[in-house]
């Protein structure tokens, strides 16, 4: 079947088997391999993307659900629209060492950006609760939480400008 949606700001039309998962469509058909599949069972969160602005695990979503929707993946996350700048959340992860191997990072970032966008004055407890669906096997989450707090603050500051 043919589906049309907005992918990282660009109108996109693809032919898909109806049983294709969004994570598979992105990685195998559209070559956007920044969205990772860590578990294939919706536990790890490495595949989180934004569907119409909300964070979803793309390994648990069927491609036909994209028809008419707006999808943002890690490849589309950026600072000012159209710029080469990194998003404040990406900058915060780099600054505060919120990653080691980087495999969980795209999902962490997408979840974190959605958390911060939904609630400007995030507490550390809310960040930890919000990241429950994202598993990292390298770190003890300490630096990830610090990064998300800093990234959320930077997003707020950018909004106020």
């Amino acid at each position: 079947m043919q589906i049309s949606f907005t992918l990282n700001g660009r109108p996109t039309t693809v032919d898909v088997e109806p049983a294709t998962l969004v994570a598979e469509l992105l990685r195998e058909q559209l070559n956007l391999t920044g969205t990772h599949i860590g578990c294939d069972t919706s536990q790890c969160g490495a595949c989180v993307v934004h569907l119409d602005g909300l964070p979803v695990k793309s390994c648990t979503l069927l491609a036909p659900a994209l028809d008419g929707a707006t999808l943002l993946t890690i490849e589309g996350l950026q600072g000012a629209p159209g710029s080469n700048l990194m998003h404040p959340m990406q900058e915060a992860f780099r600054e505060h060492h919120g990653l080691q191997c980087g495999f969980c990072t795209p999902g962490m970032l997408m979840t974190a950006v959605a958390l911060a966008a939904e609630k400007p004055d995030l507490t550390e407890a809310e960040v930890r609760h919000g990241l429950e669906g994202n598993i990292c096997r390298c770190t003890g989450y300490q630096n990830i939480v610090v990064s998300v707090m800093a990234g959320a603050a930077a997003m707020n500051a950018a909004k106020g400008e």
Binding site: L32, G34, H36, E75, F93, L99
Partner: peptide, 11 residues
């Protein structure tokens, strides 16, 4: 970090 943060890690 730059490539990991922007989805260009190439695992």
């Amino acid at each position: 970090d730059q490539r990991f943060l922007t989805g260009r890690g190439n695992y």
